[in-house]
Amino acid sequence: MRVALARNVDRLPRGSGLAYEPKFDGHRLVVLRYPGGKVLLQARSGRIVTASFPDLAEAARRLPAGTVLDGEVVVWHEGRTDFAAVQTRAMATPARAPALARRLPASYAAFDLLAEEGADLRARSYELRRERLVAVLAPLGPPLQPVPMTTDPDEAASWYETLPAAGVEGLVVKRLDHPYRGGVRQWEKLRHTDTHDAVVVGFTGTARRPSALVVVVPDDDTPVLSNPLTPELRVRAAKALDEALGDREPEEAEETVAAAGVGEVPYLRLPPDVSAGLTAEVSRGTTRLHRLITVLRLRTAE
């Protein structure tokens, strides 16, 4: 399923008929509950990640048959969302997933109801979908919960200022009368900062001389190649990779990654446990055709 998207804005939209939701620092996830108890969890890229989140899949079986949710999967740690932990969960093999689910339990912040009892609601207004979303999830409770929502711009402004301490990166603004349009940037997103934590999943070049990093950013599970590293960052990345890998070697990834102006290029992929301890602060930009990721600094696990 193609998901609805948001375009960035630099100030809080105000006016009648608007709804405001906090934007969590996690992974976009569509939950599909089929008749007969079958559940599918789909990432934004279309990848099926049901086996990586057995705790959410089990919780989703309590949904009425024919329910489709859109939302964000997050992992809470010490009172705030932890994107590296979410990425660890998303990369888990079926064999490791149950143990990770116990150690890093996932929560699902649902912000839209796309189908109810098999009826497609995408053409209906957000206001109606929100009302039905709350009604569907209210009897269930955690880990499936609706995101908070307000129509008061002053309350939304207060959220914007106070919630970053909990890992909320900003606000998403929607029109109450709009339908749900997959693949269209119909919503507006006000970020608290232009920088984000991204999980390093690979690199190009060599471990001793990495030229660019392959990262996964919040809200999108598709790996993306950064701009070329500065000479200083290449030295720091080489040291971080050497310490994180130890005696192990990265492997050629099965997939390629898109490089702006070049096309698809191969890269070396890090083991999941190494990625879990290596994050980068990045800035995000876009051109007409490409996302642009610039690495600002590296963070390693203590």
Rank of each mutant, 00 (worst) to 15 (best):
D273Q: 10
A260L: 11
A95K: 12
M1I: 10
K38R: 15
L29K: 09
L171R: 01
E78D: 15
R89S: 01
F203L: 03
L233Y: 06
R47A: 13
K239C: 04
G170D: 04
V173M: 03
G46R: 06
T195L: 01
E188L: 15
D247L: 12
P94Y: 08
R47T: 10
V172T: 07
A97D: 06
S45H: 08
S16V: 03
G285P: 12
D112C: 04
G79S: 00
P22W: 07
A110M: 12
R96N: 09
R191S: 07
V224E: 10
E251P: 00
Q42K: 13
V199G: 01
L63R: 05
L18H: 04
Y160D: 00
Y126S: 08
L289C: 06
S125N: 09
R7M: 08
K38S: 14
D220S: 10
V235P: 02
A276G: 14
A119H: 12
V215F: 09
D70H: 08
A19M: 06
V3E: 14
R44Q: 12
V49F: 05
P139D: 00
G141K: 00
L121W: 06
P153C: 03
L278S: 06
W159H: 01
K38H: 15
V168A: 01
E169T: 01
L41I: 12
V216L: 05
H196G: 00
P272E: 02
D82R: 06
W159Y: 03
D242Y: 11
T204F: 02
H192A: 13
L121Y: 06
P179H: 11
F53Y: 15
L190I: 09
A95N: 03
Q186Y: 08
A19W: 07
R208Q: 10
R103E: 14
E78Y: 07
A65H: 09
R208M: 04
P266I: 06
L114V: 06
P94L: 04
V39T: 13
A85P: 00
R11H: 13
V9A: 08
R124N: 08
E281W: 07
G285A: 15
V295G: 11
G71S: 13
L190D: 04
S275M: 07
K189S: 09
A135R: 14
A57D: 03
A253S: 15
T287M: 13
G79P: 02
H27E: 15
R288G: 15
